[in-house]
């Protein structure tokens, strides 16, 4: 565990040095601040709290942003070290391959944890102080921060999988963009087109549910838009959908564990 810790701290310090932490905080922080402050205006005198509205607007934007940041952080984590020969060197130290992957994972998670806590948490505090809606909806907001971390972890793990599968950094960069496009944009579009084309003939409710649950970004949306009644009503989504919280969280965890395990498995079989 000590080795994993050393590698994680090094990765986090590297994130501080090359301004990744600062960039991510600014990116998430600005988005959150603008959406929370601007978003509180239309609610007027209704009972909707700033943070409830914030969860809806913020989660629909961070579903694009967070996977992108996570992939940018992780795509060259392994292939980059191979290219620089530092991987070869690292593996002659008392370090095993799973420790390399997990060390990087925890390090990158520390970067995103800082970014989410400061970037999302800070503006929420500011908004609560500036608007008189108080701290109503803070549970949903904290839940959104937590699920944002889960979403980060998923795309960091997917980035590693890309990073171990390819032989060049440029390929990894390209593959990551494709991955982002598929999960964040194309999948939902394809699903929508499929539904329209199908016209309720083949794809029933169950099939649709399964198709939704396959995509990690949809899991994130579901988690944020349906977990709390107020948010669900505001978002116009049937609150408390048939997917319970444990199912959504379980699937997200699976989306983290599976790519990580696959990465370690492939790495351990890789001929150096």
């Amino acid at each position: 565990m000590r080795t994993v810790g050393i590698l994680a701290v090094n990765e986090f310090r590297d994130g501080l040095r090359n301004r990744w932490v600062a960039t991510a905080i600014i990116l998430l922080g600005t988005t959150a601040l603008v959406l929370l402050l601007a978003g509180s205006a239309p609610t007027g005198t209704t009972r909707a709290g700033t943070l409830d509205i914030g969860v809806i607007s913020l989660s629909s934007l961070s579903v694009y942003l967070i996977p992108l940041i996570a992939l940018l952080l992780s795509f060259d984590a392994l292939v980059g070290e191979f290219e620089r020969s530092t991987m070869l060197l690292l593996l002659t130290y008392p370090v095993t391959r799973w420790q390399v992957v997990m060390g990087k994972f925890f390090g990158h998670m520390m970067i995103l944890f800082t970014a989410v806590v400061v970037g999302f948490g800070g503006p929420a505090v500011v908004a609560a102080l500036l608007t008189d809606s108080g701290t109503e909806g803070w549970q949903a907001y904290v839940m959104m921060m937590g699920s944002s971390l889960l979403l980060s972890a998923i795309f960091i793990a997917l980035g590693y999988l890309v990073s171990i599968l390819v032989r060049e950094r440029s390929t990894a960069a390209g593959a990551s963009i494709v991955l982002w496009l598929i999960f964040v944009v194309l999948y939902d579009l394809a699903l929508l087109s499929l539904l329209l084309a199908d016209g309720d003939q083949w794809i029933g409710q169950t099939m649709f549910s399964v198709l939704i649950l396959i995509n990690p970004t949809d899991l994130y949306r579901l988690l944020n838009l349906t977990a709390f009644d107020t948010v669900g009503q505001l978002a116009g989504v049937a609150a408390r959908s048939e997917f319970g919280l444990p199912l959504l969280l379980g699937l997200m965890t699976l989306w983290i564990a599976a790519p990580l395990a696959a990465t370690i498995w492939i790495f351990r079989r890789r001929e150096l």
Partner: peptide, 29 residues
């Protein structure tokens, strides 16, 4: 593994790190 040292061909350390940072990392490992 602690008893062996290795200098790979064309090793390129992280550009953003200082010489001391790099040595400190490997020393900790």
């Amino acid at each position: 593994r602690r008893k062996t040292g290795f200098v790979p061909e064309n090793v390129a350390f992280h550009n953003t790190m200082t010489g001391e940072d790099i040595l400190a990392l490997y020393a900790r490992l």
